[in-house]
Design a protein around this nucleic acid. Structure first.
Lengths: 213, 213
DNA sequence: GTCTATAAATAGATAGAC
DNA sequence: GTCTATCTATTTATAGAC
């Protein structure tokens, strides 16, 4: 199926504002904020460019909406996952799955997040920074409780977080590149979300439960 | 020390071409290819803008030089590390350290690499793609040998690679963000390269040696 | 190799009609 | 809410003198 067709289908039934939003998320993920082009966004949304300014005020305003939506969605899913498990190990596993599922639900999320990291969080306002800190807080709490009950060895929560988010973001973001090189790299082809989830969960728990250095 | 002073010191003694190159690497890392500005690069290099075109032909040409230098340096260091160890576990550890040391030596490397991943490798030409594949090949070879001698459990080399590169890139790239939030996040402050190296080495070996799923 | 001046294109944003 | 036409600023790139 051609890209235009796929994007047409994804846009079907959405109102003008939502179509602009969806097209913008894709454009920002593919090209970054500076590389994104409002003409292209409007074209992809099949909406007049002026509507973009009518609904979002500016390119920057549109980007902020995309960022906010993304962070809130991730934090929401992670918060739910953490709230419904009491066992620290189960909670870590649920956190991993929550992040991975969100990357599936919002395909623009990994690329945009990687770019924000590369940028040093330049576009991340205080509200979004708080959301990120909350996610890290969930990880830290699970680690701390596991350590308190001797189920985990002491570990820096940031390292645990990096060991979860880093591989997940890279896995999803490299999907197009891997597809392109799949002829040469057999083991890099046809990997599923389930597989990466299981792997990252296993690594996280081995790290927390395994013998220390 | 102010930024201007630091950059002035870093540029001291370099020729025009090298100063442009150094300034460009910093600019591309901070803003990405699209966000980078040739006027700003020339200003930071304290060189006339026309010299940029004289030496590099275009903004894109300059970026390609930076990319090529970066990939070759990483691949070189990783290749050396792999060549001088026979034990698979030692080789994995050496690979981790090689990548981390390169991130220290070329501070622009993590951000640029993260951006290229986010972009789906759009600027990565065939030569550079080959270099990346070679690094992944070193990881795959070490994994395979370890499995053959029963020291490692079977594992997908790509997942091992993601578990090494993902956390390392994130660690170095988030350094500025972490510094900004260090008041709120005690455990995220004052982490050293040695610590992240030791951690990633440990995780990689636990993953390869630990009990499977 | 170095610089000034400027061409040429791109792209964000808005006015104003409907 | 929607669209056309256009303004304006920015920015890559080059011509040509020294």
């Amino acid at each position: 199926m051609k890209t235009a067709t796929r994007s047409k289908r994804r846009l079907a039934g959405l109102g003008t504002r939502d179509r602009l939003f969806a097209a913008a998320a894709t454009e920002f993920a593919a090209r970054g904020f500076a590389g994104a082009n409002v003409d292209r966004i409007a074209l992809a949304a099949r909406v007049n460019k002026a509507m973009l300014y009518y609904h979002f005020k500016s390119k920057a305003g549109l980007y902020q909406e995309v960022l906010k939506d993304m962070f809130q969605a991730v934090a929401g899913r992670v918060g739910d996952a953490a709230a419904t498990r009491s066992d620290p190990a189960e909670r870590i596993k649920a956190l991993v799955e929550a992040i991975a599922r969100e990357a599936e639900a919002r395909p623009h999320f990994p690329a945009i997040w990687l770019r924000e990291i590369a940028e040093g969080g330049g576009h991340v306002d205080k509200e979004n920074l708080g959301i990120i800190a909350k996610v890290l807080g969930h990880v830290a709490a699970a680690v701390q409780e596991g350590v308190a009950t001797r189920r985990f060895k002491p570990a820096n929560p940031l390292f645990i977080q990096l060991g979860i988010v880093g591989p997940l973001l890279m896995f999803f973001a490299t999907a197009p590149m891997r597809r392109r090189a799949s002829q040469q790299l057999a083991f890099a082809a046809d990997l599923t979300t389930e597989q990466i989830i299981a792997h990252v969960q296993r690594v996280a728990l081995l790290t927390l439960e395994g013998k220390s250095a």
